[in-house]
Design a protein around this nucleic acid. Structure first.
Lengths: 230, 230
DNA sequence: CTTTTTTTTCAACAAATGTTGAAATTGGCC
DNA sequence: GGCCAATTTCAACATTTGTTGAAAAAAAAG
């Protein structure tokens, strides 16, 4: 029952998690077999089942492992940003707090974390699990960021903030999907592996995007006078 | 060799394509079996192979079927926008030309097209095929849009435009993934199925995002915000 | 040491997978 | 009708899949 001592069984366990993380991120849930995971982890086929039960629960375990760490890192950045600004944060500062842990954090060059982020990109865009899993693992923290954005954009409607976050989330996850598309499209001018470059551009783009909702515009103002009594 | 008359063989063929489209969009390439496709199409298991060859070529056929139509619709909108503006288009007009066919076009309520868009969302974020397939099917048209954006943002660097398009693409594909996440996150305030609402918000967000690159900021000049002349 | 518990291996299971070749059916054309 | 080609069905194939139970090995405990 020792805690600090490196228990040998954990080596196999984390090896399985690491291998599963990489495989799931690369090929998706159905594109991966337990046998390939076991082979990459250097263990027997039956071992994943011994530790994690059925395949689906192994998938959840992979997702859960780093979720808390990421959430904690984001919340730390957010509170720091709120404190420094005396609870009057700028939009850019909030977005940087949100993106920094993933794009310029300390573990940004660790292969394991990159695989994890790619996996999140897969999950976020998956019609099967996107809604359920992202809500379960990340939305509590996202709500905190929305709260902060309300402070930075007092005029904006909630609906606008949610849609804006939707855009931010889509851009971020596409970045981590690491498809290499932007490399080809730009003829090598942009590198999908250059996360620092991606970070600066995404900050600028999404900050402007959020700020566009600073004051709510009349929704239906396309040549027809609004019928709403206001 | 008649053209207009509905040839009976085409019924089975398109039934297979429709079923494959829906299944692939919902579960991804590896999450779908030829048997489930055949069952949904109401045909024998061997028929997909007869028409399209191996599974992977059926997948490509699904992707290809509507790609040209979508590309054509987008180019039409773009040229219209360029003509109307005397080759001095606004950013917003270009973005609307890009999004309109998918979000407010005539076939926006056809189930087949919605499935197709969800499939593109899947492909765009897939590390396996994202780079290859999106480049092959869509990037020629995207380059035309980048050209137009250069007209609208003469001061922007090309690298900025590519990254900005990257953000737009990520937001758009997440919209079509139809995960329902924004519904839960917003507590029902936003509906992922309300494409008109998504359209207006994405236009506003991404227009501001692109416009943020109107003048290139000095890359390494953190403490000095540039003064916009206006 | 012995005993007990935990971990790992091994072999095998039933079910499901993509694919194929031959047979059966259909439809068009003389 | 008969003939030919295109289409569809059927049955089966060799693999591969996730999972399991028992045996073996390793580790921990006494």
């Amino acid at each position: 029952m020792s805690v600090t001592r490196t228990e040998p069984r954990l080596d196999r366990r984390t090896a399985i998690l690491d291998a599963a993380e990489e495989q799931f991120a690369r090929h998706g849930y159905d594109g991966v077999t337990l046998r390939s995971i076991a082979k990459h982890a250097g263990v027997d086929v039956a071992l994943p089942n011994y530790y994690f039960g059925p395949k689906r629960e192994l998938f959840d375990a992979v997702l859960l492992r780093r979720a808390e760490i990421l959430n904690h890192a984001r919340l730390t950045q957010l509170e720091e940003c709120l404190d420094e600004s005396n609870r009057k944060p700028t939009v850019e500062a909030i977005i940087r707090a949100y993106l920094r842990p993933m794009l310029t954090g300390e573990h940004v060059h660790e292969e394991g974390w990159k695989n994890y982020y790619a996996l999140i990109a897969y999950v976020n865009n998956s019609p099967e699990w996107g809604g359920q899993l992202m809500t379960q693992f990340f939305d509590p923290v996202i709500k905190r960021f929305i709260d902060a954005l309300r402070l930075a954009l007092p005029g904006a409607r909630d609906r606008d903030l949610y849609w804006a976050y939707h855009c931010l989330s889509g851009a971020l996850t596409l970045t981590f999907a690491q498809t290499g598309r932007i490399d080809r499209l730009s003829g090598g001018l942009c590198l999908s592996t250059d996360l620092t470059d991606a970070y600066e551009h995404m900050v600028k783009f999404t900050t402007a995007g959020f700020s566009a909702f600073r004051e709510p515009t009349d929704e239906k103002k396309k040549g027809r006078p609004p019928k709403r009594p206001s």
